[in-house]
Structure formats: structure tokens, C-alpha cells
Simulated assay, not measured.
Amino acid sequence: MIQLDALPSAADFYARYWNRQPFMVRGGVPEDVISALISADELAGLALDDGPQSRMVRNADWTCTFGPLTEQDFTDAGEADWSLLVQNVEQFHPPTAALLPCFGFAPRWLMDDIMVSYSATGGSVGPHVDSYHVFLVQGQGRRRWTVGRQPLGRENYIEGLDLKILHEPIEGDEIEVRRGDVLYVPPKFGHEGISLEDSLTFSIGFLGPRMSDLMGAYGHYLSQREDTDRRYVGEDLTPASAGSVIDTITVEDIRDRLTRQLGSADFSRWLVGFFAEQSHPDMAQGEQREETLSADQLRARLQQGAALIKPQQIKFTLAIAPSGEACLGFLGDSMALHSDLVPVAEKLIQGQPVANIDALEFLRRLYNLQVLEFI
């Protein structure tokens, strides 16, 4: 396996590794970031709650218990050979989102979540493949990974399990990781991790949607907007359309209409909102604060030296047209941006504080929707 001295630049990442081959970086995440992440005890606490999606895997028989878990589940698990996995940890433990700036070269708009797994000694979720790109950050303890050297052409799973466990062991490179090490695994590369001692692993997953999901979601978006959901009335039909045959000209006409709809400004505005949705269904979607700020109140605070910042766990997406006009997505919503506001949005995306009085209404709307916070 390729071992790098540091996490790659964006140019190297997309040219050499993205969708192509795994790599490993020793100490890729600095200690000050690792020390801020969720602890094993805090992770277990999340698994007891109703909100987070969690599961416990026992690798003696590959049984899987889905959360919310109970304290008895942990007692029964014993001292070895089990793992706890919790999804969307960055939403329920915001300090864990401090991992995300380390991977600024990756497409944040495709990020699904940060899943955290605690494994007792010997714990594993078996040999498997994923449909997503994943960065595996070792946060505690040691873990031995086996990673395939090429994508699996055929996935043969053990039948009768809740988990997708490959029938055959992974043939590939073995590597032992420690605190702060980073492993990148592209989709369809078989991999298996076994905990050599009690350990925590942080999995940052990047998952693209199916084309059917995109088309269905865009169709739903159009159906909510009377100005764009135009009915096909067959105004260009000819005598060739009589009866049950849809003639070639009509097929091409309808295809062209759909293509024009995809090329409209509505599509860009919908797309940024689609990719800015939080992956956990219960997270707030741009709800108004109970105590909103007026323009005068926000102006006064900014003039007194306050600034606004986007929390790391909130995803922003931005699409910029050649004209300079743009669309900003956040929490499943979106807004059109004048070109003057694009630099402000870019600073927020980069995690920088913003106090621009000339962007007052833009900042006020985002603050009142709980997208920005004061620092």
C-alpha cells in the first residue's frame, strides 16, 4: 500500500487516488484535533439514546443488535470480540466535526457523515466493501487493516446475516494503524479491520446518490413550484401521433423539454439544496430561532466587534455560474446569491469569521435559521 508523508493536495488526490487506489498517512491528523473528538464513554452514551443510529456487532457469530442499546447489551458483550458503531456523530457531538477541515481536499458536498466505531480487543465488522469513499482515522488504540489492491469484481456475501460480510477473506495489503493515522479506501475495495486493543476509529464517508434518487428528488422539487411544474400538452403533435404510437419526433421533443429543464437556473438552486441536506433525518432543517435578530440588532452587534461563523457540522454547498451569480445550499434549503455575496459565502465555507455590514441581510437570514453562530 502507498504510504504518504502527509495528506495529499487536491491536485494529487484527484489525479492519483480518488476512485483509484488506497493510501495511508502516519499521523495525518494532529494530536490537538484527535484529543477533541468523542470519547468511548461518550459514544456509548449516544448509543443509549433514541436519536443516533447505532448498532453492536459481535463477531463470534456476526449477530447485530440495533440501537437504542441498553446497559445490559454492553454487559453481555463481554471484554472482547465486539464493536459499537454510531452514525452521524458530528451532528450529536459537534466537536467531532473538527476532523473535517483536515480533509478539505475532498468533496465536502458529497460527505455523508462521520461514523465512529468502538471495538474491544478482537472486534471487527468482518471483510466487506462499501459503496462510498472513506477516510478511516484511528483515534485510540491499534487496529490491523487488510485492504484489497483493486476493486472487487464480484461480491459474494455470507447468507442469512444482517450484515454484508464477504464469504472469502480479503487478499491484499496488511497495515497496522495507531492514533492519528489515516487510511483512505475507495469504493468497492475490500477491507477488514481487526482491533488489536480497545480502539476508536472515525470513518468519514463520501457517498454519491443514485441517478434515480436525483431524478426523483428534482421531480418532487418541481412539483412544489407552480411556476416550473408545467404540464405537457402536446402542442407540437402531428398526424403521426394518432393512435397508440409515440412517433420519433415526439420522443425527441419530450427529451428536449426535460433537458431544457435540467439546464434551467432552477436546477442549480435545487442541486445545492439537495447536496446540503443533513444525512440524519431528525436533524433540524433550517428552523427559525425562537429569538430572531432584527437588522438593527445584528448591525449593532457587528459594530461592537462580534462576528459570525458557520459551525463545522453544518454543510454549505455553492454553485457559481459563469456570470458570477450563484446559489448557496444549506440544511436542505437554498438561496440565490448576487455575485457580491459570493466572497462572503466562500469565507463562511472555509470556516472564517465574517462581520460584513454590507452583507447584513444575508447574514441575518442565515443566523435566524440557526446556520451561523456568533464567536
Rank of each mutant, 00 (worst) to 15 (best):
A10N: 00
A10M: 01
Y17N: 00
Y17R: 04
N19W: 00
R20K: 15
G28P: 01
P30W: 01
E42I: 03
L46N: 00
L48W: 03
G51N: 12
V57T: 11
N59Q: 06
N59R: 03
G67V: 06
T70D: 07
E71G: 11
D73I: 05
T75H: 11
W82I: 07
W82D: 05
V86T: 04
Q87D: 02
F92I: 01
H93L: 04
P94L: 13
C102D: 02
G104N: 14
F105S: 09
M111H: 08
D113V: 10
I114C: 11
T121N: 10
S124Q: 10
G126S: 08
V134K: 07
V137H: 09
R149V: 13
L152S: 13
E155C: 10
N156R: 14
E159R: 10
L163Q: 13
K164G: 04
E168D: 15
I170H: 10
E176A: 07
L183E: 01
V185P: 03
V185C: 11
G190P: 06
G193V: 04
G193E: 10
S199Q: 05
L200V: 07
S203F: 04
S203C: 11
S212Q: 04
L214S: 04
G216M: 13
H220F: 14
S223E: 15
E226R: 11
D227F: 02
R230W: 10
T238G: 08
P239H: 07
A240K: 11
S241M: 15
A242Y: 12
I246R: 01
D247K: 03
T248Q: 14
R255I: 12
R257L: 13
R260G: 05
G263F: 10
L271P: 01
Q288S: 13
S294A: 07
D296W: 02
Q297I: 04
Q312W: 12
Q313G: 00
I314L: 15
F316P: 06
I320S: 00
P322S: 01
S323M: 08
S323T: 15
S323Y: 05
L328S: 06
L328E: 07
D333Y: 09
P343Y: 13
A345Y: 10
A359Q: 10
A359E: 08
A359L: 08
R365W: 06
R365F: 03
